[in-house]
Structure formats: structure tokens, C-alpha cells
Design a protein around this nucleic acid. Structure first.
Lengths: 302, 302
DNA sequence: TAAATCCATATCTGATACATATGGCAGATG
DNA sequence: CATCTGCCATATGTATCAGATATGGATTTA
């Protein structure tokens, strides 16, 4: 049996009249009559009762009619769905981001923009450390990853730089340098005697190394008294008075009791980049559309 | 597109290799390659990415693969389901019976036997008066009807006599003729001075007329002091002492306080038949099977 | 570098779907 | 009651299409 048989059958069932159904289908009455007979032979059941004035469905024919309509409907749906997927308008993509990425207002904004523009594409969101994310990207568990730093190894991946943001000092409330919050930016060198609390290097090597390098360029080695596993625990430790930290400016959206943010005088290397990494080669249409939107939105965001 | 295209596509998708898929399908590799290309043109999307060593699905191809498998599965299901319906092993039939029919042990038994034998056939059961049932049968709201009497007009219907049962006298407890319940059968003439409570003629004309005729043959006109709309209300009125009644023997399964059943000496015309009525012509396979089972079970029941 | 593997293209042929002509049957009509 | 009408079924011919065979092109493998 072929779909042609189902289409012919449904037409005859709806018309109750072979000649009218043939007209509707654009063929002549004898081949339609033959096709119905062939279908009945193949199904192994009589689907119509022949009358002098037209045909009527048997009980088996009524059962088959229901199924046939549904099958034809599903075929049309399959076509439409496949075309949408091919155009990237439908499907599923998995997006990863580092623990600090969501605090950057760009990331939630572009995710919302994508959802609005492509409601039929399902987004899976994953948050993890940079290394885990890159590994998942390579293993095809993730399709695109927002990263905030240079990973040790981006081979096989395409990394699209989106933007960068300044870093700020995070000081315990009551700290001698915390007065006049929002006033004149601090010299990085003013932090030379301070104990440092830094986001663990393994989780965010880009931040860690950038901070170390910037301090050395300012003339001192920072005293790292504690590494924190998460960006939030970094702030918690600062609030507890264990030391100071340097974090991306977007973190100041996270107002936390006991933490005061102070701007720093511009240090060329002390910035936090935001990039999107994907696998090289041919992305799925949905991933392609996502990358396009992210890059376009990043240009408009600056 | 035809089902052939779906079958070819699924085979290639599963094998990832056109030559192997062609072998599996029993055709040569070049026509299969052409059919896949034709399908991609018709869908309007590339379903496979060609590699030097085989083909792999695109995102659109993966979406289509899911749909194609489901469609082919539904086609097989439609065939099987239609065959079952054609064999009367599946479908739905509506059975009607008069208010008194369920008390005959045969009726629930044959219904259970049918359910056991054809679990995929759904039974709708309706209870009503004989006239309503016959009307519903003619209007195709019911497919088969158990009746207990001769309806005024069975034209256009086929009535299969199943069996008959004796009638019994239903007396108020304490009645002078109620003593020695189960003893020697009563003469019908012994009831000549009694007030009669009868099941309404409109609801069960066969019973009514048979009782009137039998009494006249026994030499008296029964004094009908009350007609009851339902067989149960007939018994209720007897229990209340309004009079006596004559009911099918199967009613004695309905033990009711205040009612005593007494057998009657055999009166040729005073029996309650049980018949199955269906429309003339070609019943659906499920109805045909039901009629067959009912008739066969009735023979074994006697 | 030659051979192997795999899909794509070209050409031919048999099978099949459809057109046309006509027949048969049951119901409608005069 | 005879004739006509409406509708599906059968017979025959033909154009189209699916599949076979032969061969080519590109990439990988030995």
C-alpha cells in the first residue's frame, strides 16, 4: 500500500461516490475503482459496501477511515516539522555557561531574545565550570557555551568574542578603602598589602591568571589566602572579612550585605571577556541561528 | 511522497549506508540513491549529509526519522486494526434489553461470554421498554435487542427466538394461596376472584396480552386494579397487598420481602419468550459474531 | 600511488497507473 | 412494465516511472 491508496480511500469515503471522488482527485473513475479494490485486497477486508447509488463504508471501512485520516495528517505534519527544523526554526539546543556568565545582563537578554524569536526551539541550559563546559561541548552534550576566559585548549572549537567588561574590587564593608564607594577609582597598587580571595583557578583560569598578571604589572604579588569554588562563595568570603577580591563588574548586580564594590583605575589586561564557543564544522540549523543572533545582539549591546 | 519513500528513508537512516540499505530492501543501490534524492526534493530539506564512507542524518533528517517511523508504525497498526474489525474481533456494538430481560440468567451470562471471547469489542448496554428498544434498533442507535414479547411491529427486523420460560404467580405474603410455597402448582382458575397487578401493557405488551388471553381461556376476565410502569414496581405493589401478579419465572431470583412465588399448572400460552432482534440485511462483523454467540449459547442453555 | 569503498549519473527496460471505451446491474421514471 | 439513468466494474491501450545495469567521481586506505 502507498499513501496514494490512503488519499484515494479517504476521498471515496468522504464523497460516498467513486465518480465524484475521482473528479476531486483529478483522475478518471475506472482507475480509482481499481485502486480501491487493490487496497481492499491488500488490507484483506472489504472497506466499502457497493450500492446502486454510490458506496458506503463497512464497519472495517469506518475503522480504517479514522486511521487513514490520522496517518495523512501526520504525514503533512512531518513535512512541516522537518522543514522548520531544516530552517532552524524548530529543534533543541543545549547551551552552557560558566557560573559567572548569567550575571552579565547580556546573557539572559540574548536567551530571552532567542526564545521569543524561535519559540519552537527548545533550549536546555547548563551551568558549570569552564573546563567541564568545554568538555561537554566537544562530546556533543552541549551545542554552544558562553565562556568568560581563555580555556586551556580551544582546539576544534570556534570561539566568537562577544564583548568584555571591566573588573572591580570587592571589599569587605568597613574596609579602610571602602569609604567613598563610587568615588575615585582605586589604584591596583593600593591593594598590594591586602589578603586576596580568588575564584578557584581550575574553575575560571582566565580570571585567575588575568588578576595575577595585572597585580605583578602593578608591582606586587597578591597574597591569595583563599580560593573559592564558586563565584558566589568568593563574595561570601569577602563579606566575612577574609580578604578582598577582584571580580567582573557585572557581579555588582549581586548586592550582598558586607560587600562594597570599588572601581579600579583602568588596567589594560584586567578585563573579563565574554565569548561564545561552538564546535567547528556544520552546526545544526538551530545552532546556526542561535550563533547568528548572539553575535548580532552582542554588536548592538556594546 | 509515498510510503515507499518513508521505508527507503528509514532503512538508509538506520544503516547509514545506501548500499547496505538497498540490500536490506531488495533493490539495487542507484535507484535507492535516486529515491532518497527525490524525497529530499519533495520535503524541501536535506535529510542526509553525504560522507565518503556512508551518510549521516542532518538535524532535519533526525526530526523526519522520528516522524517517519511513527507513520510506518501507524500504518501497520491501521492494517491490523482494520482486519480485526472486519473479523468482528474489534469494534463497538450497542445492546438493548427490556426491563425484565436482565433477570433471566441467560442474558448476563451471554454478555459475559461475549466480553471474554472478544475483549476488543466495546459493548454499550441500554435498558428500556420494548417499543423504545425496537425504535432505537430501527434508528441504528442499537445493534441488537433482547425482547421478551411480541412487539406490535417487527417489520424490517430479524427476530431470533432463543428460549422461553414459564410464568409464575406472585402473591402477597400471607395470601390464602401463599401457603405451601413450592407445593402443588396452582390452577390459573383459582385466581379468578383476585385483584390483578400487571406490568403496563405499553411497556411489555407481550406479557400483558398473554396473561389476559390465558385467563380468558381459563374461564375468567382478570380484574386489573393497577398497571405498573416497571417490572420491579409490579412486585412492590404485590408486596403492598394491592393484588397478585403473574411474572416470568426468572423474576423469583428477585427475593422480595412480602412476595411469595407459586408455580402454575401448565398453560400452553402462558410463557415468556426471550428473543434477540436485529436489523435485517448485513450486520457489522461484530454484530454478526454477537448474534452467532447468543444463538449458540441459547441452544446449550436449554 | 594504486586499490577499495561508497554514492551519483546515464541509459535501458519492464511494470504499473491512468485514460478511454464499454458493459452490467439496480433503481427511478413515464 | 418497459425504458432510461446513474453508478461502479471490466477490457484494452499507452505513457510514466521504478528498478536494473554500466560506469564515473571523490575520498580513504593500504
Amino acid at each position: 500500500m502507498e499513501l496514494r491508496h490512503l488519499r484515494y480511500f479517504v476521498a471515496v469515503a468522504e464523497e460516498g461516490h467513486v465518480t465524484r471522488a475521482a473528479e476531486r482527485l483529478g483522475i478518471q473513475q475506472p482507475p480509482l475503482s481499481l485502486q480501491i479494490r487493490a487496497l481492499e485486497r491488500e488490507v484483506g477486508a472489504q472497506l466499502f459496501r457497493r450500492r446502486p447509488r454510490g458506496m458506503e463504508l463497512t464497519a472495517a471501512g469506518r475503522a480504517f477511515f479514522t486511521d487513514a485520516q490520522e496517518i495523512l495528517q501526520r504525514v503533512d505534519h512531518a513535512f512541516a516539522s522537518t522543514r522548520r527544523t531544516a530552517r532552524g526554526e524548530q529543534g533543541r539546543i543545549a547551551i552552557g555557561f560558566t557560573n559567572s556568565a548569567p550575571f552579565h545582563p547580556f546573557v539572559p537578554r540574548v536567551i530571552r531574545a532567542f526564545r521569543d524569536g524561535f519559540p519552537l526551539v527548545a533550549l536546555n541550559l547548563e551551568e558549570s565550570g569552564t573546563s567541564e563546559l568545554v568538555e561537554a561541548l566537544r562530546a556533543e552534550r552541549l551545542d554552544a557555551v558562553f565562556v568568560r576566559s581563555s580555556a586551556p585548549d580551544y582546539s576544534g572549537l570556534a570561539v566568537h568574542f562577544l564583548m568584555e567588561e571591566k573588573m572591580m574590587a570587592a571589599l569587605p564593608a568597613g574596609h579602610r578603602l571602602a569609604a567613598n564607594s563610587g568615588a575615585k577609582p582605586l589604584d591596583l597598587a593600593a591593594l598590594n598589602a591586602e589578603p586576596f580571595v580568588l575564584y578557584r583557578r581550575l574553575a575560571g583560569p582566565g580570571f585567575y591568571d588575568a588578576i595575577i598578571t595585572a597585580c605583578r604589572d602593578a608591582g606586587f604579588n597578591p597574597t591569595v589566602v583563599q580560593e573559592a569554588p564558586r563565584i558566589l562563595s568568593t563574595l561570601n568570603l569577602v563579606a566575612a572579612g577574609l580578604g578582598i577580591s577582584i571580580v567582573p563588574a557585572s557581579l555588582q548586580r549581586m548586592q550582598m550585605d558586607g560587600v562594597v564594590y570599588r572601581r579600579l583605575k583602568t588596567v589594560r589586561k584586567l578585563v573579563a571577556p565574554l565569548s561564545l564557543a561552538v564546535r567547528r564544522g556544520e552546526p545544526s540549523p538551530a545552532v546556526g541561528r542561535f550563533v547568528d543572533l548572539v553575535r548580532k545582539t552582542a554588536k548592538a549591546f556594546r
